[in-house]
Write a protein that binds this DNA or RNA. Structure first.
Lengths: 217, 217
DNA sequence: AGTTAATGGTGGTCTGACCACTAGATTCGG
DNA sequence: CCGAATCTAGTGGTCAGACCACCATTAACT
């Protein structure tokens, strides 16, 4: 049958220490499975959208129980690397950092959910993206930016403006972190900037002056 | 017996659509279990080191199969929230994101785009905590800080130094974010600062000069 | 030809069983 | 009486088999 060409090299001969140690001791099976699946993905050069073998197939290929396969797949799903559709199968998925950020934050915020922390983190991200954007925007982008300057202290406009900045700077990780925090601060009292603040921000952006930008915070 | 005071409210009576839908459709059982376990932890105020009920206990309490319990626990383990010891049980754990980080990094080695993003985010956090620390440290803390200045470009010392800063500033959210990112950059080539950099950073801290601090980046 | 019914494959879940391991109770020997 | 060896109950780790709900395809029927 030769079903094991790239096969699992761990076999648990547990009798009296006779144990073919391809794996470090105490390594759980699902961790080994994870390695093998990764190897499979790389070997077959699977890309987002491609279909993975079924759980039963993997189970037979790797010679481990289906539950172990499932635990490994669950890990990959948590990481946002695969997607499972009941009745269809398991598919590769484009890696999206926000998945990870959201997941993390969900638990991070259990211990640390003081308002001040969230606001500080949010402000930090906004400051950072402004600094990163300095000198990076074309005249067209600057014009767009000017149009987005809020006339009133409107939180929606604020959201739009910074979303635009994050997107144009091609930094999805920072964007997702910021968006997530915004999701929380939205309910509570949020920091609001004055109209003047936005104007000065825009001036600093035009003049490409980091000092002026920093002085805003 | 009254075993279900805070109990799971989903019960899958699958006969002919008689199904008490407390959960949104298509939610997987293990996701519901995750919520319940989280609620249990908060309700019982479990802290790092405390023991959780056994898998079989949870299975009976929540009226779901043990495998579903295990999938939820596996997720918590990946997130670094719990620790399982064979023959002993499942225990709470101080949050350490490195597990998930290690897993993820195995799958993202080749994505340079992601790598750059992570480094940028890391640097942003380090800059921020330095700024936040200015003027907040006592003379004793400054002395400690001075002792921690790395003589060589040592990544371990770097880690210690910033961990100290994050902790002293009582900003666990930023600390967690930073630690998480460090987990990634640890494996790959990391940004390193020169000895001189650390000295100037210390000088800026003493002089309480934001400008000097900013100029480091 | 177009609609409907049957089929096989898939992930999702539950059950029961066995293993290796640990800690505490029990027993034994001094 | 006390220390050491042993037994035991409970735990996580794993597997196998079974069922379910779901989906896509195919086969059958009108």
């Amino acid at each position: 049958m030769e079903k094991g060409l790239w096969l699992f090299s761990l076999n648990f001969v547990t009798m009296k220490g006779v144990c073919s140690m391809t794996h470090t001791l105490d390594e759980k099976v699902y961790e080994g499975v994870l390695e093998q699946i990764k190897a499979y993905i790389e070997d077959k050069k699977l890309e987002p959208g491609d279909k993975l073998p079924s759980e039963r197939m993997f189970s037979e290929l790797l010679q481990v129980g289906r539950s172990s396969i499932r635990e490994a797949l669950r890990a990959l799903e948590l990481l946002g690397l695969i997607e499972t559709r009941r009745g269809e199968g398991t598919f590769m998925r484009a890696y999206r950092p926000y998945h990870m950020v959201g997941l993390l934050s969900k638990f991070l915020l259990n211990n640390t959910r003081t308002r001040e922390e969230l606001l500080a983190a949010k402000q930090m991200l906004e400051k950072e993206i402004l600094i990163l954007s300095i000198g990076q925007l074309s005249s067209e982008q600057l014009a767009k930016l000017q149009l987005m300057l809020p006339e009133a202290c409107n939180s929606e406009d604020h959201l739009k403006l910074f979303t635009y900045l994050f997107e144009e700077s091609h930094h999805p990780l920072l964007l997702s972190m910021w968006q997530f925090i915004c999701g929380f601060t939205h309910t509570v009292h949020d920091i609001t900037y004055s109209d003047d603040w936005y104007r000065r921000m825009y001036q600093a952006m035009i003049k490409q002056s980091k000092e002026q930008m920093y002085s805003l915070f």
